[in-house]
Design a binder for these strands. Sequence first.
DNA 1: TTTTATTTGGAACAATCATTCCAATATAGA
DNA 2: TCTATATTGGAATGATTGTTCCAAATAAAA
Lengths: 193, 193
Amino acid sequence: MPRVKQFCEEDVLKKAMELFWEKGFHATSMQDLVSHLGINRASLYDTYGGKEELFDAAFKHYRESAVGWLEDVFQSESSIKAGFKRLFSTAIQEAVTDQCRKGCFVVNTTTELVPGNQKIDRTLVEHKAHMEDLFITYIQRGIENGEIPAHKDAQEIGLMLFTLYNGIRVVSKVDTDTKKLQKVVDSGLSVLN
Amino acid sequence: MPRVKQFCEEDVLKKAMELFWEKGFHATSMQDLVSHLGINRASLYDTYGGKEELFDAAFKHYRESAVGWLEDVFQSESSIKAGFKRLFSTAIQEAVTDQCRKGCFVVNTTTELVPGNQKIDRTLVEHKAHMEDLFITYIQRGIENGEIPAHKDAQEIGLMLFTLYNGIRVVSKVDTDTKKLQKVVDSGLSVLN
DNA sequence: TTTTATTTGGAACAATCATTCCAATATAGA
DNA sequence: TCTATATTGGAATGATTGTTCCAAATAAAA
């Protein structure tokens, strides 16, 4: 009768996420996954269907935790500028620290799989819209409470900072010079003044 | 005795570049290349050695034409701001026009193959340094001739605009809304004032 | 314990991968 | 012409791809 999975699906997704994140969809083989997930090949197909579905699940896991974390940051920081500073400095620290140089899973997937199947395309469009909305709404809040000059265009600045964020995830894969990356952030955030 | 290639190597490189650019290294098969380059499989191996060497050659072809084009733009435009505007608006137009949504070959390669073999890593580091130098020197020129306020930090702005440029190449693969992309550019270029 | 559901290891599959080889053909210079 | 080099089509290589299947083992529910 009703039964419970004997392996921890969260752990499997986490490890699958790491693999796809580091090597990309095409360069990650099912053999890689079977070797590292700690789950049998048959169970893997039984649970997820196939490589593409497993990728979708792992990618979704990444996006949800990334968005959740960002919402936390934007909600918990005392000022709008502090929120953005923490967002960017975390990205820099992640890039400098991570030995694998994985970068951002969303950016990697965008450049590898777009344009691909419609499902991935739609997912990325929706995710981008959600992220932009978070950025813009957050800036709007800063304008309303007087932290950011009222004449500023929240959408314009929000879109720019989101784009810059994506750029940082790219360039920091090649060059992890913290000082240079910090200059990029300083210059970018100057639009908030 | 000395002999001349019977196929045009420039055309072959161009077509190989298009394929690798669009689909990436791993997703492009030798069969794809043989089918589209108009050159025989044996000749291909005879001339380049293998898939990786062919990729290197095609990637080099891209970088050289891209850098050459950028140098032209920066040299020919009347003002520094006009130079950057043309750089960015060309990127936007390319993103909006291209049905394949190829994006930027350098960005795609960075996210797909870093960290990979040392050769690619070194190539990307050198290319980034070269591009940043072009950006920074160009801004420095604007400061010296009075177009850009003297108190501005050329390196800081140059690094930021280069990073933003990379970001645009990413986000424009997902969303080709010209107005939004133009806002990103406007906001980014505001640091020159 | 018996029953039912889940996981396992491993074999097997057909397809595709990058690469090599070769005999035949074509093209150039002598 | 003759000779040397290039290019061709196609077969063959061995490795790896994603996927399916199955009998044995394991674990939970009855």
